[in-house]
Every structure is written in structure tokens, then in C-alpha cells.
């Protein structure tokens, strides 16, 4: 059979030689596709995982248009030069200087403003405004709690999360891509500083309220503010606020001396029930009951009223911040 095929091929070749050389198209299975794809895949695998490409390297990229759209998207009026300064990290300026030096320019004249001063001002403003908003929203929570909430809202992780969701990752001028969390957080603070310079302090507060404080919506507040020893804290709070002596009482139990035992403990002060909790033993139940009592006293229950995100700064606080 193979001999027959070979002879046929030789016959065909002879025929081809006699014909004029013509480029003729044939429709057939493209047998080169799979091997090519396989080879490309092999080379890609050999290169290893690649860094994400910055969007600014694409042909369709207009930094000025992006800056303009950033302001419009957030309904803020920005001076574009100042906004660009807010997005420029000090490390980027240093990188530019090094690049010029490497190119052989002895006297580097990089005049790019970085965001250091703006971010410092923004950090101060953000801290003051968030603190003012939280103390207004949680009037019964002591300073420790307000500090914990403020730290949560102004932590690098939270600020960088907000910054990425405002589309700042691509706009940031940093020495490496993707930018670090710290750079994103600094840059968001610098944007707050820019808003204050462009549209005034009131507008900066509104920005902080709308984008930073709203992150407190529907959060488990006790998860943010981990109270280590709730019984001790409850005792101190009751002394401070003259609520009377705390008396824990067992108000129910079931499945005693079994694996699934449950105890229901109520805390009484001046013969009034101030908190109740469940636990697998009495000590745990008392701890849970203390947490419950603290929640009631501080007004941070799980079913508390939603926070008011339409609040404005009082004039006296505004003057104090400036």
C-alpha cells in the first residue's frame, strides 16, 4: 500500500514539474494552528508569570483626559496641575532624576511637584474630620472606641481600598507598577488636601464623609473594636455612669452536664436587666452578656439605627480644625 502511495506522489511531482508555477489556494485543515499555539504556550510557560501591564502604556491613553474625568466622576472641581501633583509620589520624582543622570545629564532639572505636603495636610484633615464625624455619630462611645474606629477607617488597607475603587491605581505616578498600598493611601490623602485647596474645607469634609466615613455602614463594630476584657470595662463604665453594682444571674439553662449545654445569663444593675448572653458555660455566657450590656450602653447594637451620612460640620468644629 505504501509503495502504491509513494508511486502516486512521484507521479504527482512529475506532473507539477511540467506545469507552470502558479500560486493556487487550497482549502484544507490548518495543521499548523495547534503546533503554533502549543509552541507559544511553551514559551509563555518558560517566561514565567509576568507583571501586570500598566494601562498608561497602551496607545489609547490620555493622562490629561483621565485626570479631568477623575474630578468629574467624583463631582469635584480640581485644578489639574495640583491634582497631578497629588498623584505624584516622591519616589517617582527620585526615579526621574536617576533616569536623567543615567542618560548623562549632569545637572538634573526635574521640576515635578510631589504630593508630600498635600498628603500631610490631607492626613491631618482626614483624622480631624473622621474623628468629628464619629464622635457625632456615636455620642455614648468612649474615646478608646472612637480611636479604634478612626484607626480602622484611616488604616493603610482601608485607604488604599478606597483609592483603588476611585480609579487611582492607573493615575498614580509611582516608581513601580502596580503601586504599593502605602502609595495609594498617601495619594488619597493628598487628593483630600487638594480638595481643601481647590474648593475649601467644607467640600473636603463632604468628600471624607462620602467616601471614608461611609465605610462604617453595616460593619460589625465589635469586630473593629475588639474589647479584650468586657467584664472589667463594664464594671468601670458602670462606676463612671453611676449605673450601680453589676449582678450576673442565671436566667436559663438547658442540657446541663452534656456536650450541648447552653447557659443564659442576665446582668442586672439596680434590679434592671442591662444585658444578656448565651454560652457553653457560665463564664462564657457572662462575658457575652457583658459585651451585650456594653453594646446597649454605648448604643452600638447590631440593630442600631443607620448612621446619618448627610451630617455637616458645625461651624465651631470647622474653626477648630483650621
Amino acid at each position: 500500500m505504501s509503495l502504491f502511495r509513494l508511486s502516486l506522489r512521484i507521479l504527482n511531482q512529475n506532473k507539477g514539474l511540467t506545469r507552470l508555477p502558479v500560486l493556487d489556494q487550497t482549502r484544507c485543515f490548518k495543521r499548523w494552528v495547534a503546533p503554533t499555539l502549543r509552541e507559544l504556550r511553551r514559551r509563555q510557560k518558560k517566561l514565567g508569570p509576568q507583571l501586570p501591564q500598566p494601562r498608561s502604556g497602551f496607545i489609547e491613553w490620555n493622562y490629561r483626559a483621565e485626570l479631568f474625568a477623575f474630578g468629574k466622576r467624583l463631582h469635584e472641581e480640581f485644578d489639574l496641575e495640583m491634582l497631578q501633583a497629588a498623584f505624584t509620589q516622591p519616589s517617582y520624582v527620585q526615579k526621574e532624576q536617576v533616569r536623567q543622570r543615567d542618560l548623562g545629564i549632569v545637572e538634573t532639572d526635574v521640576v515635578i511637584k510631589d504630593n508630600y505636603e498635600l498628603s500631610e495636610r490631607g492626613a491631618y484633615l482626614a483624622n480631624e474630620c473622621v474623628r468629628a464625624y464619629l464622635s457625632h455619630s456615636f455620642p455614648n462611645v468612649p474615646v478608646v472606641g472612637i480611636n479604634a474606629f478612626t484607626d480602622y477607617l484611616l488604616s493603610t488597607g482601608m485607604l488604599s481600598h478606597i483609592a483603588t475603587h476611585l480609579g487611582m491605581t492607573e493615575l498614580l505616578l509611582d516608581d513601580n507598577y502596580p503601586p504599593k498600598q502605602e502609595s495609594l493611601a498617601r495619594s488619597l490623602l493628598a487628593v483630600i488636601g487638594t480638595i481643601e485647596q481647590c474648593s475649601g474645607q467644607e467640600q473636603a469634609f463632604l468628600f471624607i464623609r462620602d467616601f471614608v466615613c461611609t465605610q462604617m455602614n453595616q460593619r460589625d463594630l465589635l469586630e473593629i473594636w475588639g474589647i479584650d476584657d468586657p467584664e472589667l470595662m463594664l464594671k468601670q463604665v458602670c462606676e463612671e455612669r453611676n449605673l450601680g453594682e453589676i449582678e450576673p444571674r442565671l436566667i436559663g439553662d438547658c442540657g446541663k452536664n452534656t456536650l450541648l449545654s447552653a447557659y443564659h445569663v442576665g446582668l442586672y444593675a439596680n434590679k434592671k436587666l442591662i444585658g444578656r448572653g448565651f454560652g457553653e458555660d457560665v463564664a462564657t455566657a457572662t462575658k457575652v452578656a457583658s459585651l451585650n450590656a456594653l453594646q446597649e450602653i454605648f448604643g452600638i447594637q447590631d440593630n442600631m439605627r443607620p448612621l446619618n451620612f448627610q451630617a455637616h460640620l458645625k461651624p465651631e468644629i470647622r474653626n477648630a480644625i483650621a
Binding site: 474625568a69 466622576r73 463631582h75 480609579g167 462620602d210 467616601f211 466615613c213 461611609t214 465605610q215 451620612f309
Partner: peptide, 18 residues
């Protein structure tokens, strides 16, 4: 809703279109 969008102010989530 990403970033509690709409509680503070509404931000259009489409940032660029080609």
C-alpha cells in the same frame, strides 16, 4: 454596590470606554 456606592454620593463605575 462597590465602595458603598450611593450612600455618600453616586459615582459612575464606568471609567473609560474604547
Amino acid at each position: 454596590a462597590p465602595l458603598q456606592n450611593g450612600i455618600g454620593r453616586y459615582v459612575c463605575q464606568l471609567q473609560r470606554v474604547t
